[in-house]
Design a protein around this nucleic acid. Structure first.
Length: 527
RNA sequence: GCGGGCGUAGCUCAAUGGCAGAGCGUCGGCCUUCCAAGCCGAUGACGAGGGUUCGAUUCCCUUCGCCCGCUCCA
């Protein structure tokens, strides 16, 4: 019974604290629920995860540019994005069974239960869909943190801490477009802190109130523009090659799937085996109204299968919203598109418009808007659509920690049982890459050689020096930190120029020269 | 907010109505030392407040915090 109330994360959480990965925020004052600090090893891990993402998403590609925007932005951004309205959920609680729920979802819950429409009490309050009890007055619960900008604490000065990094990308879209020498299709990536006043933070760092995101907004042409340019639009039915270079005639569906595959490649590269995560394609009725498709990549955490990142096809919703609220055009000019449209005669244009209108009306959109949209396309102008891969740094870190954690039962030469706690991080994200030990402190030549090696290595990668305690103990310390390699320099080393390299996972040892070790290490660290 | 579990050292855990103990860790030192168990020393805790009592870490009350569930979706 007591076991069931324990978190399955407890052993990992204890290690994280003991070794300096994760601490509770403000611990000496009793902590703050939903806020976590990363200690010496944790911040290295975090840096590595972010660096890996940045390399994979931005620097390793020629079609993505970076951005680092502020956390506090003009409050209208959140009006335009919908966060101010949709993030303010009216919460209500049943006075009988104490269930907490969103007032606006009671109807849905009843519908799911196939019950009659929302029964109202005589006083006009709602009844609990579970037990029929009286509900408390719905209270607005805004998930955004409010603050005041400037010296006067006045409602007109209210601003919000961003609940996602994505909106800054949309808000700076035209600036990046003008200065990055990129053309659609291209992406803008950003990493940074976001804040959500979660009702109940839970599951260690999984749902935090302050967390860090890695988001990419990849802007693409609307399918109609691709059609004009290429006379066709490649869809998933065409079996496009998603591993090769990107193609100009891909439609949004293909781009979306392409990014799903890219994200999976990234997760695999930083050490999550594909077998350990699942792709969940949201069903049409689960999609947000602006989304055309959304895939969640979920990981089997010890506390259940949970979302690690999401890849959404958001159409032109965000940029259009900002265009509407700011009054600034968010359209791009696409010269190849204009040139292609020039070749269409009036009949072809009329037929094209008619086709688009039919399609739009079928999707519940306005026919006149469709025509306006087409006329703009003929001028080479449109609001780009967007594919949004959005990942949580802290969630990925937690998944990597869960995945890496192992308590190995070993039996030594003398037949004694021993438990080895080891973090099997992929070397690319391991906080410490290599530890250097002098086997014997008193042997001057080898001690000096160990110091020289350490001095050289620390200029290249995060390295650790340890000369205290017995050698086996030093190895085990590094196992708990997840250090992939330990170098032990012994009295023989100055003579043959080689040292012992001990592998974390296999515990195998081999004698290598400095150059041989460097080659081995770099091979493992490269993306 | 409600229900359940739980608060003893950095971590894991003891004991007790009468000076709070161990292992690991950390720090210093010794040992010619390749897989945590060689030696010496140091470090350090009863979440907070109140009550009962000669005396409370232990019993009672209050409070604070953590964990699990109800909501959240990076």
């Amino acid at each position: 019974m007591a076991e069931e109330n324990k978190s399955s994360l407890d052993p990992l959480a204890a290690l994280c604290k003991r070794r300096g990965f994760i601490y509770h925020s403000s611990e000496i004052y009793g902590g703050m629920p939903g806020f976590w600090d990363y200690g010496p090893l944790g911040c290295e891990l975090k840096q590595n995860v972010k660096q890996a993402w940045w390399q994979f998403t931005v620097r390793g590609r020629s079609d993505v540019a970076g951005l680092d925007a502020t956390i506090i932005m003009h409050p209208k951004i959140w009006k335009a994005s919908g966060h101010l309205d949709t993030f303010a959920d009216p919460m209500t609680m049943c006075k009988e069974c104490k269930k907490l729920m969103r007032a606006d979802q009671i109807g849905d819950i009843l519908a799911e239960q196939k019950k009659k429409p929302v029964p109202h009490n005589p006083e006009g309050t709602l009844s609990c869909p579970y037990c029929g009890g009286e509900m408390t007055e719905p209270k607005p619960f805004n998930l955004m943190f409010k603050t005041v900008v400037g010296p006067i604490d006045d409602p007109s000065n209210v601003a919000y801490l961003r609940p996602e990094t994505a909106q800054a990308i949309f808000a700076q879209f035209t600036n990046v477009l003008a200065t990055s020498r990129q053309q659609v299709p291209f992406g803008i990536a950003q990493m940074g802190k976001s804040f959500r006043n979660e009702v109940t933070p839970r599951n260690y760092t999984f749902r935090s109130r302050e967390f860090e995101q890695m988001e990419l907004e990849f802007f693409i042409r609307p399918d109609e523009a691709v059609e004009i340019l290429h006379g066709h639009v490649v869809t998933l039915a065409d079996n496009p090659d998603l591993d090769g270079p990107v193609q100009d005639d891909w439609g949004w569906e293909v781009w979306h799937k392409y990014w799903v595959e890219q994200r999976k490649k990234f997760l695999t590269a930083v050490g999550l085996p594909p077998a350990r995560f699942v792709e969940y394609w949201q069903k049409p009725d689960e999609l947000a109204h602006y989304a055309r498709a959304c895939v969640d990549i979920e990981y089997d955490f010890p506390f259940g299968r949970q979302e690690l990142e999401g890849i959404a096809a958001r159409s032109d919703f965000d940029l259009s919203q900002h265009q509407k609220w700011s009054g600034e055009s968010q359209m791009v000019f696409d010269d190849p598109l204009k040139q292609a449209a020039k070749k269409m005669d009036d009949a072809a244009r009329a037929a094209f418009i008619e086709k688009v209108q039919k399609d739009w009306v079928a999707r519940g959109k306005d026919s006149l808007e469709a025509e306006k949209f087409c006329r703009n396309l003929f001028d080479g102008k449109y609001v780009p659509h967007v594919i949004e891969p959005s990942a949580g740094v802290d969630r990925l870190m937690l998944a990597l920690l869960c995945e890496a954690y192992e308590e190995q039962k070993l039996t030594d030469d003398k037949g004694k049982d021993d438990v080895r706690t080891v973090l099997h991080f992929n070397p690319k994200v391991a906080p410490v890459k290599v530890a250097v030990f002098p086997l014997v402190k008193k042997d001057e030549a080898s001690y000096k050689m160990a110091q020289d090696i350490f001095g050289k290595l620390r200029k290249k990668v995060n390295s650790f020096w340890d000369e205290s305690g017995q050698i086996g103990r030093r190895y085990r310390r590094q196992d708990e930190a997840g250090t992939p390699w330990c170098i032990t320099v012994d009295p023989e080393s100055p003579k043959d120029g080689k040292f012992t390299v001990r592998d974390r996972d296999s515990m195998q040892q081999e004698r290598l020269s400095y150059e041989e070790f460097l080659a081995k290490m770099y091979a493992a660290l490269e993306f």
